[in-house]
Amino acid sequence: MSTILTDIESAVSCRDVVKEFGQGDTRTVALSGVNVDIRPGRMTLLVGPSGCGKTTLISIIAGLLNSTSGTVNVLGRDLSRMSGSELVRFRQKNIGFVFQQYNLLPTLTAAENAAIPLIIGGTPRRKAVATASELLAAVGLEKRLNAFPSQLSGGQQQRVAIARALVHEPRLLVCDEPTAALDAQSGRTVMELLKRVALQADRAVIIVTHDSRVFGFGDQIIHMDDGVVTQVETTRNTAAAPLYEVSHD
């Protein structure tokens, strides 16, 4: 059982979140009573072995999955009370995504790919691409604006994906294994970039990873196992006190 000590300014607050898949004999419990608070201005790492429930948890936090029970409060909104269309609009406006496999559209250039969230939000294409180009310059890709994903290295593609995730200035950035497909050097570059470009006082960054080499970048590390949070570490990067004391029954 987890005991909540503090946090009233959380970007993300999960209370007793349960997620079950299937029914009857095929019923699987992915999350069993997860309590988590994530503050803005911090880089939070969600770590744990495969199948521990971290992907399910960020899917719920990002509004891509509904929890079976419990409450999920993101940026002051209770996701469980939002309709499907409200959730879509909420995601579009407030959440940026970085995926393990980048998920760039192969037929668009780097600048066009990075501009997609703005275009989805209704920004005219030329303006969106111009804004995205500025951000790509900030991540060191000013010379590859017109390159297609197939012409970019894995690290460069992930930088495009980061630019795409940030171009509409979301208040929550969700990254799924952003370094998993990269070599050590590229992985380090991506993490440094996230720290430098993504992290802002009013933005929370959640990174799902099992790559222990990047643990040092986290301000807060949430360990999960078997569908529950087992430990929350606060590192030297933040002055905030640990959010949880974890005890096991």
Binding site: A62, L64, S85, V88, R89, R91, Q92, K93, F97, F99, Q101, N103, L105, P106, I116, P117, I120, G121
Partner: peptide
């Protein structure tokens, strides 16, 4: 499909 999924995640209805 993955790209469509990504677009859905990013807020395409």
């Amino acid at each position: 499909l993955k790209q469509f999924g990504a677009l859905k995640a990013m807020g395409v209805t």
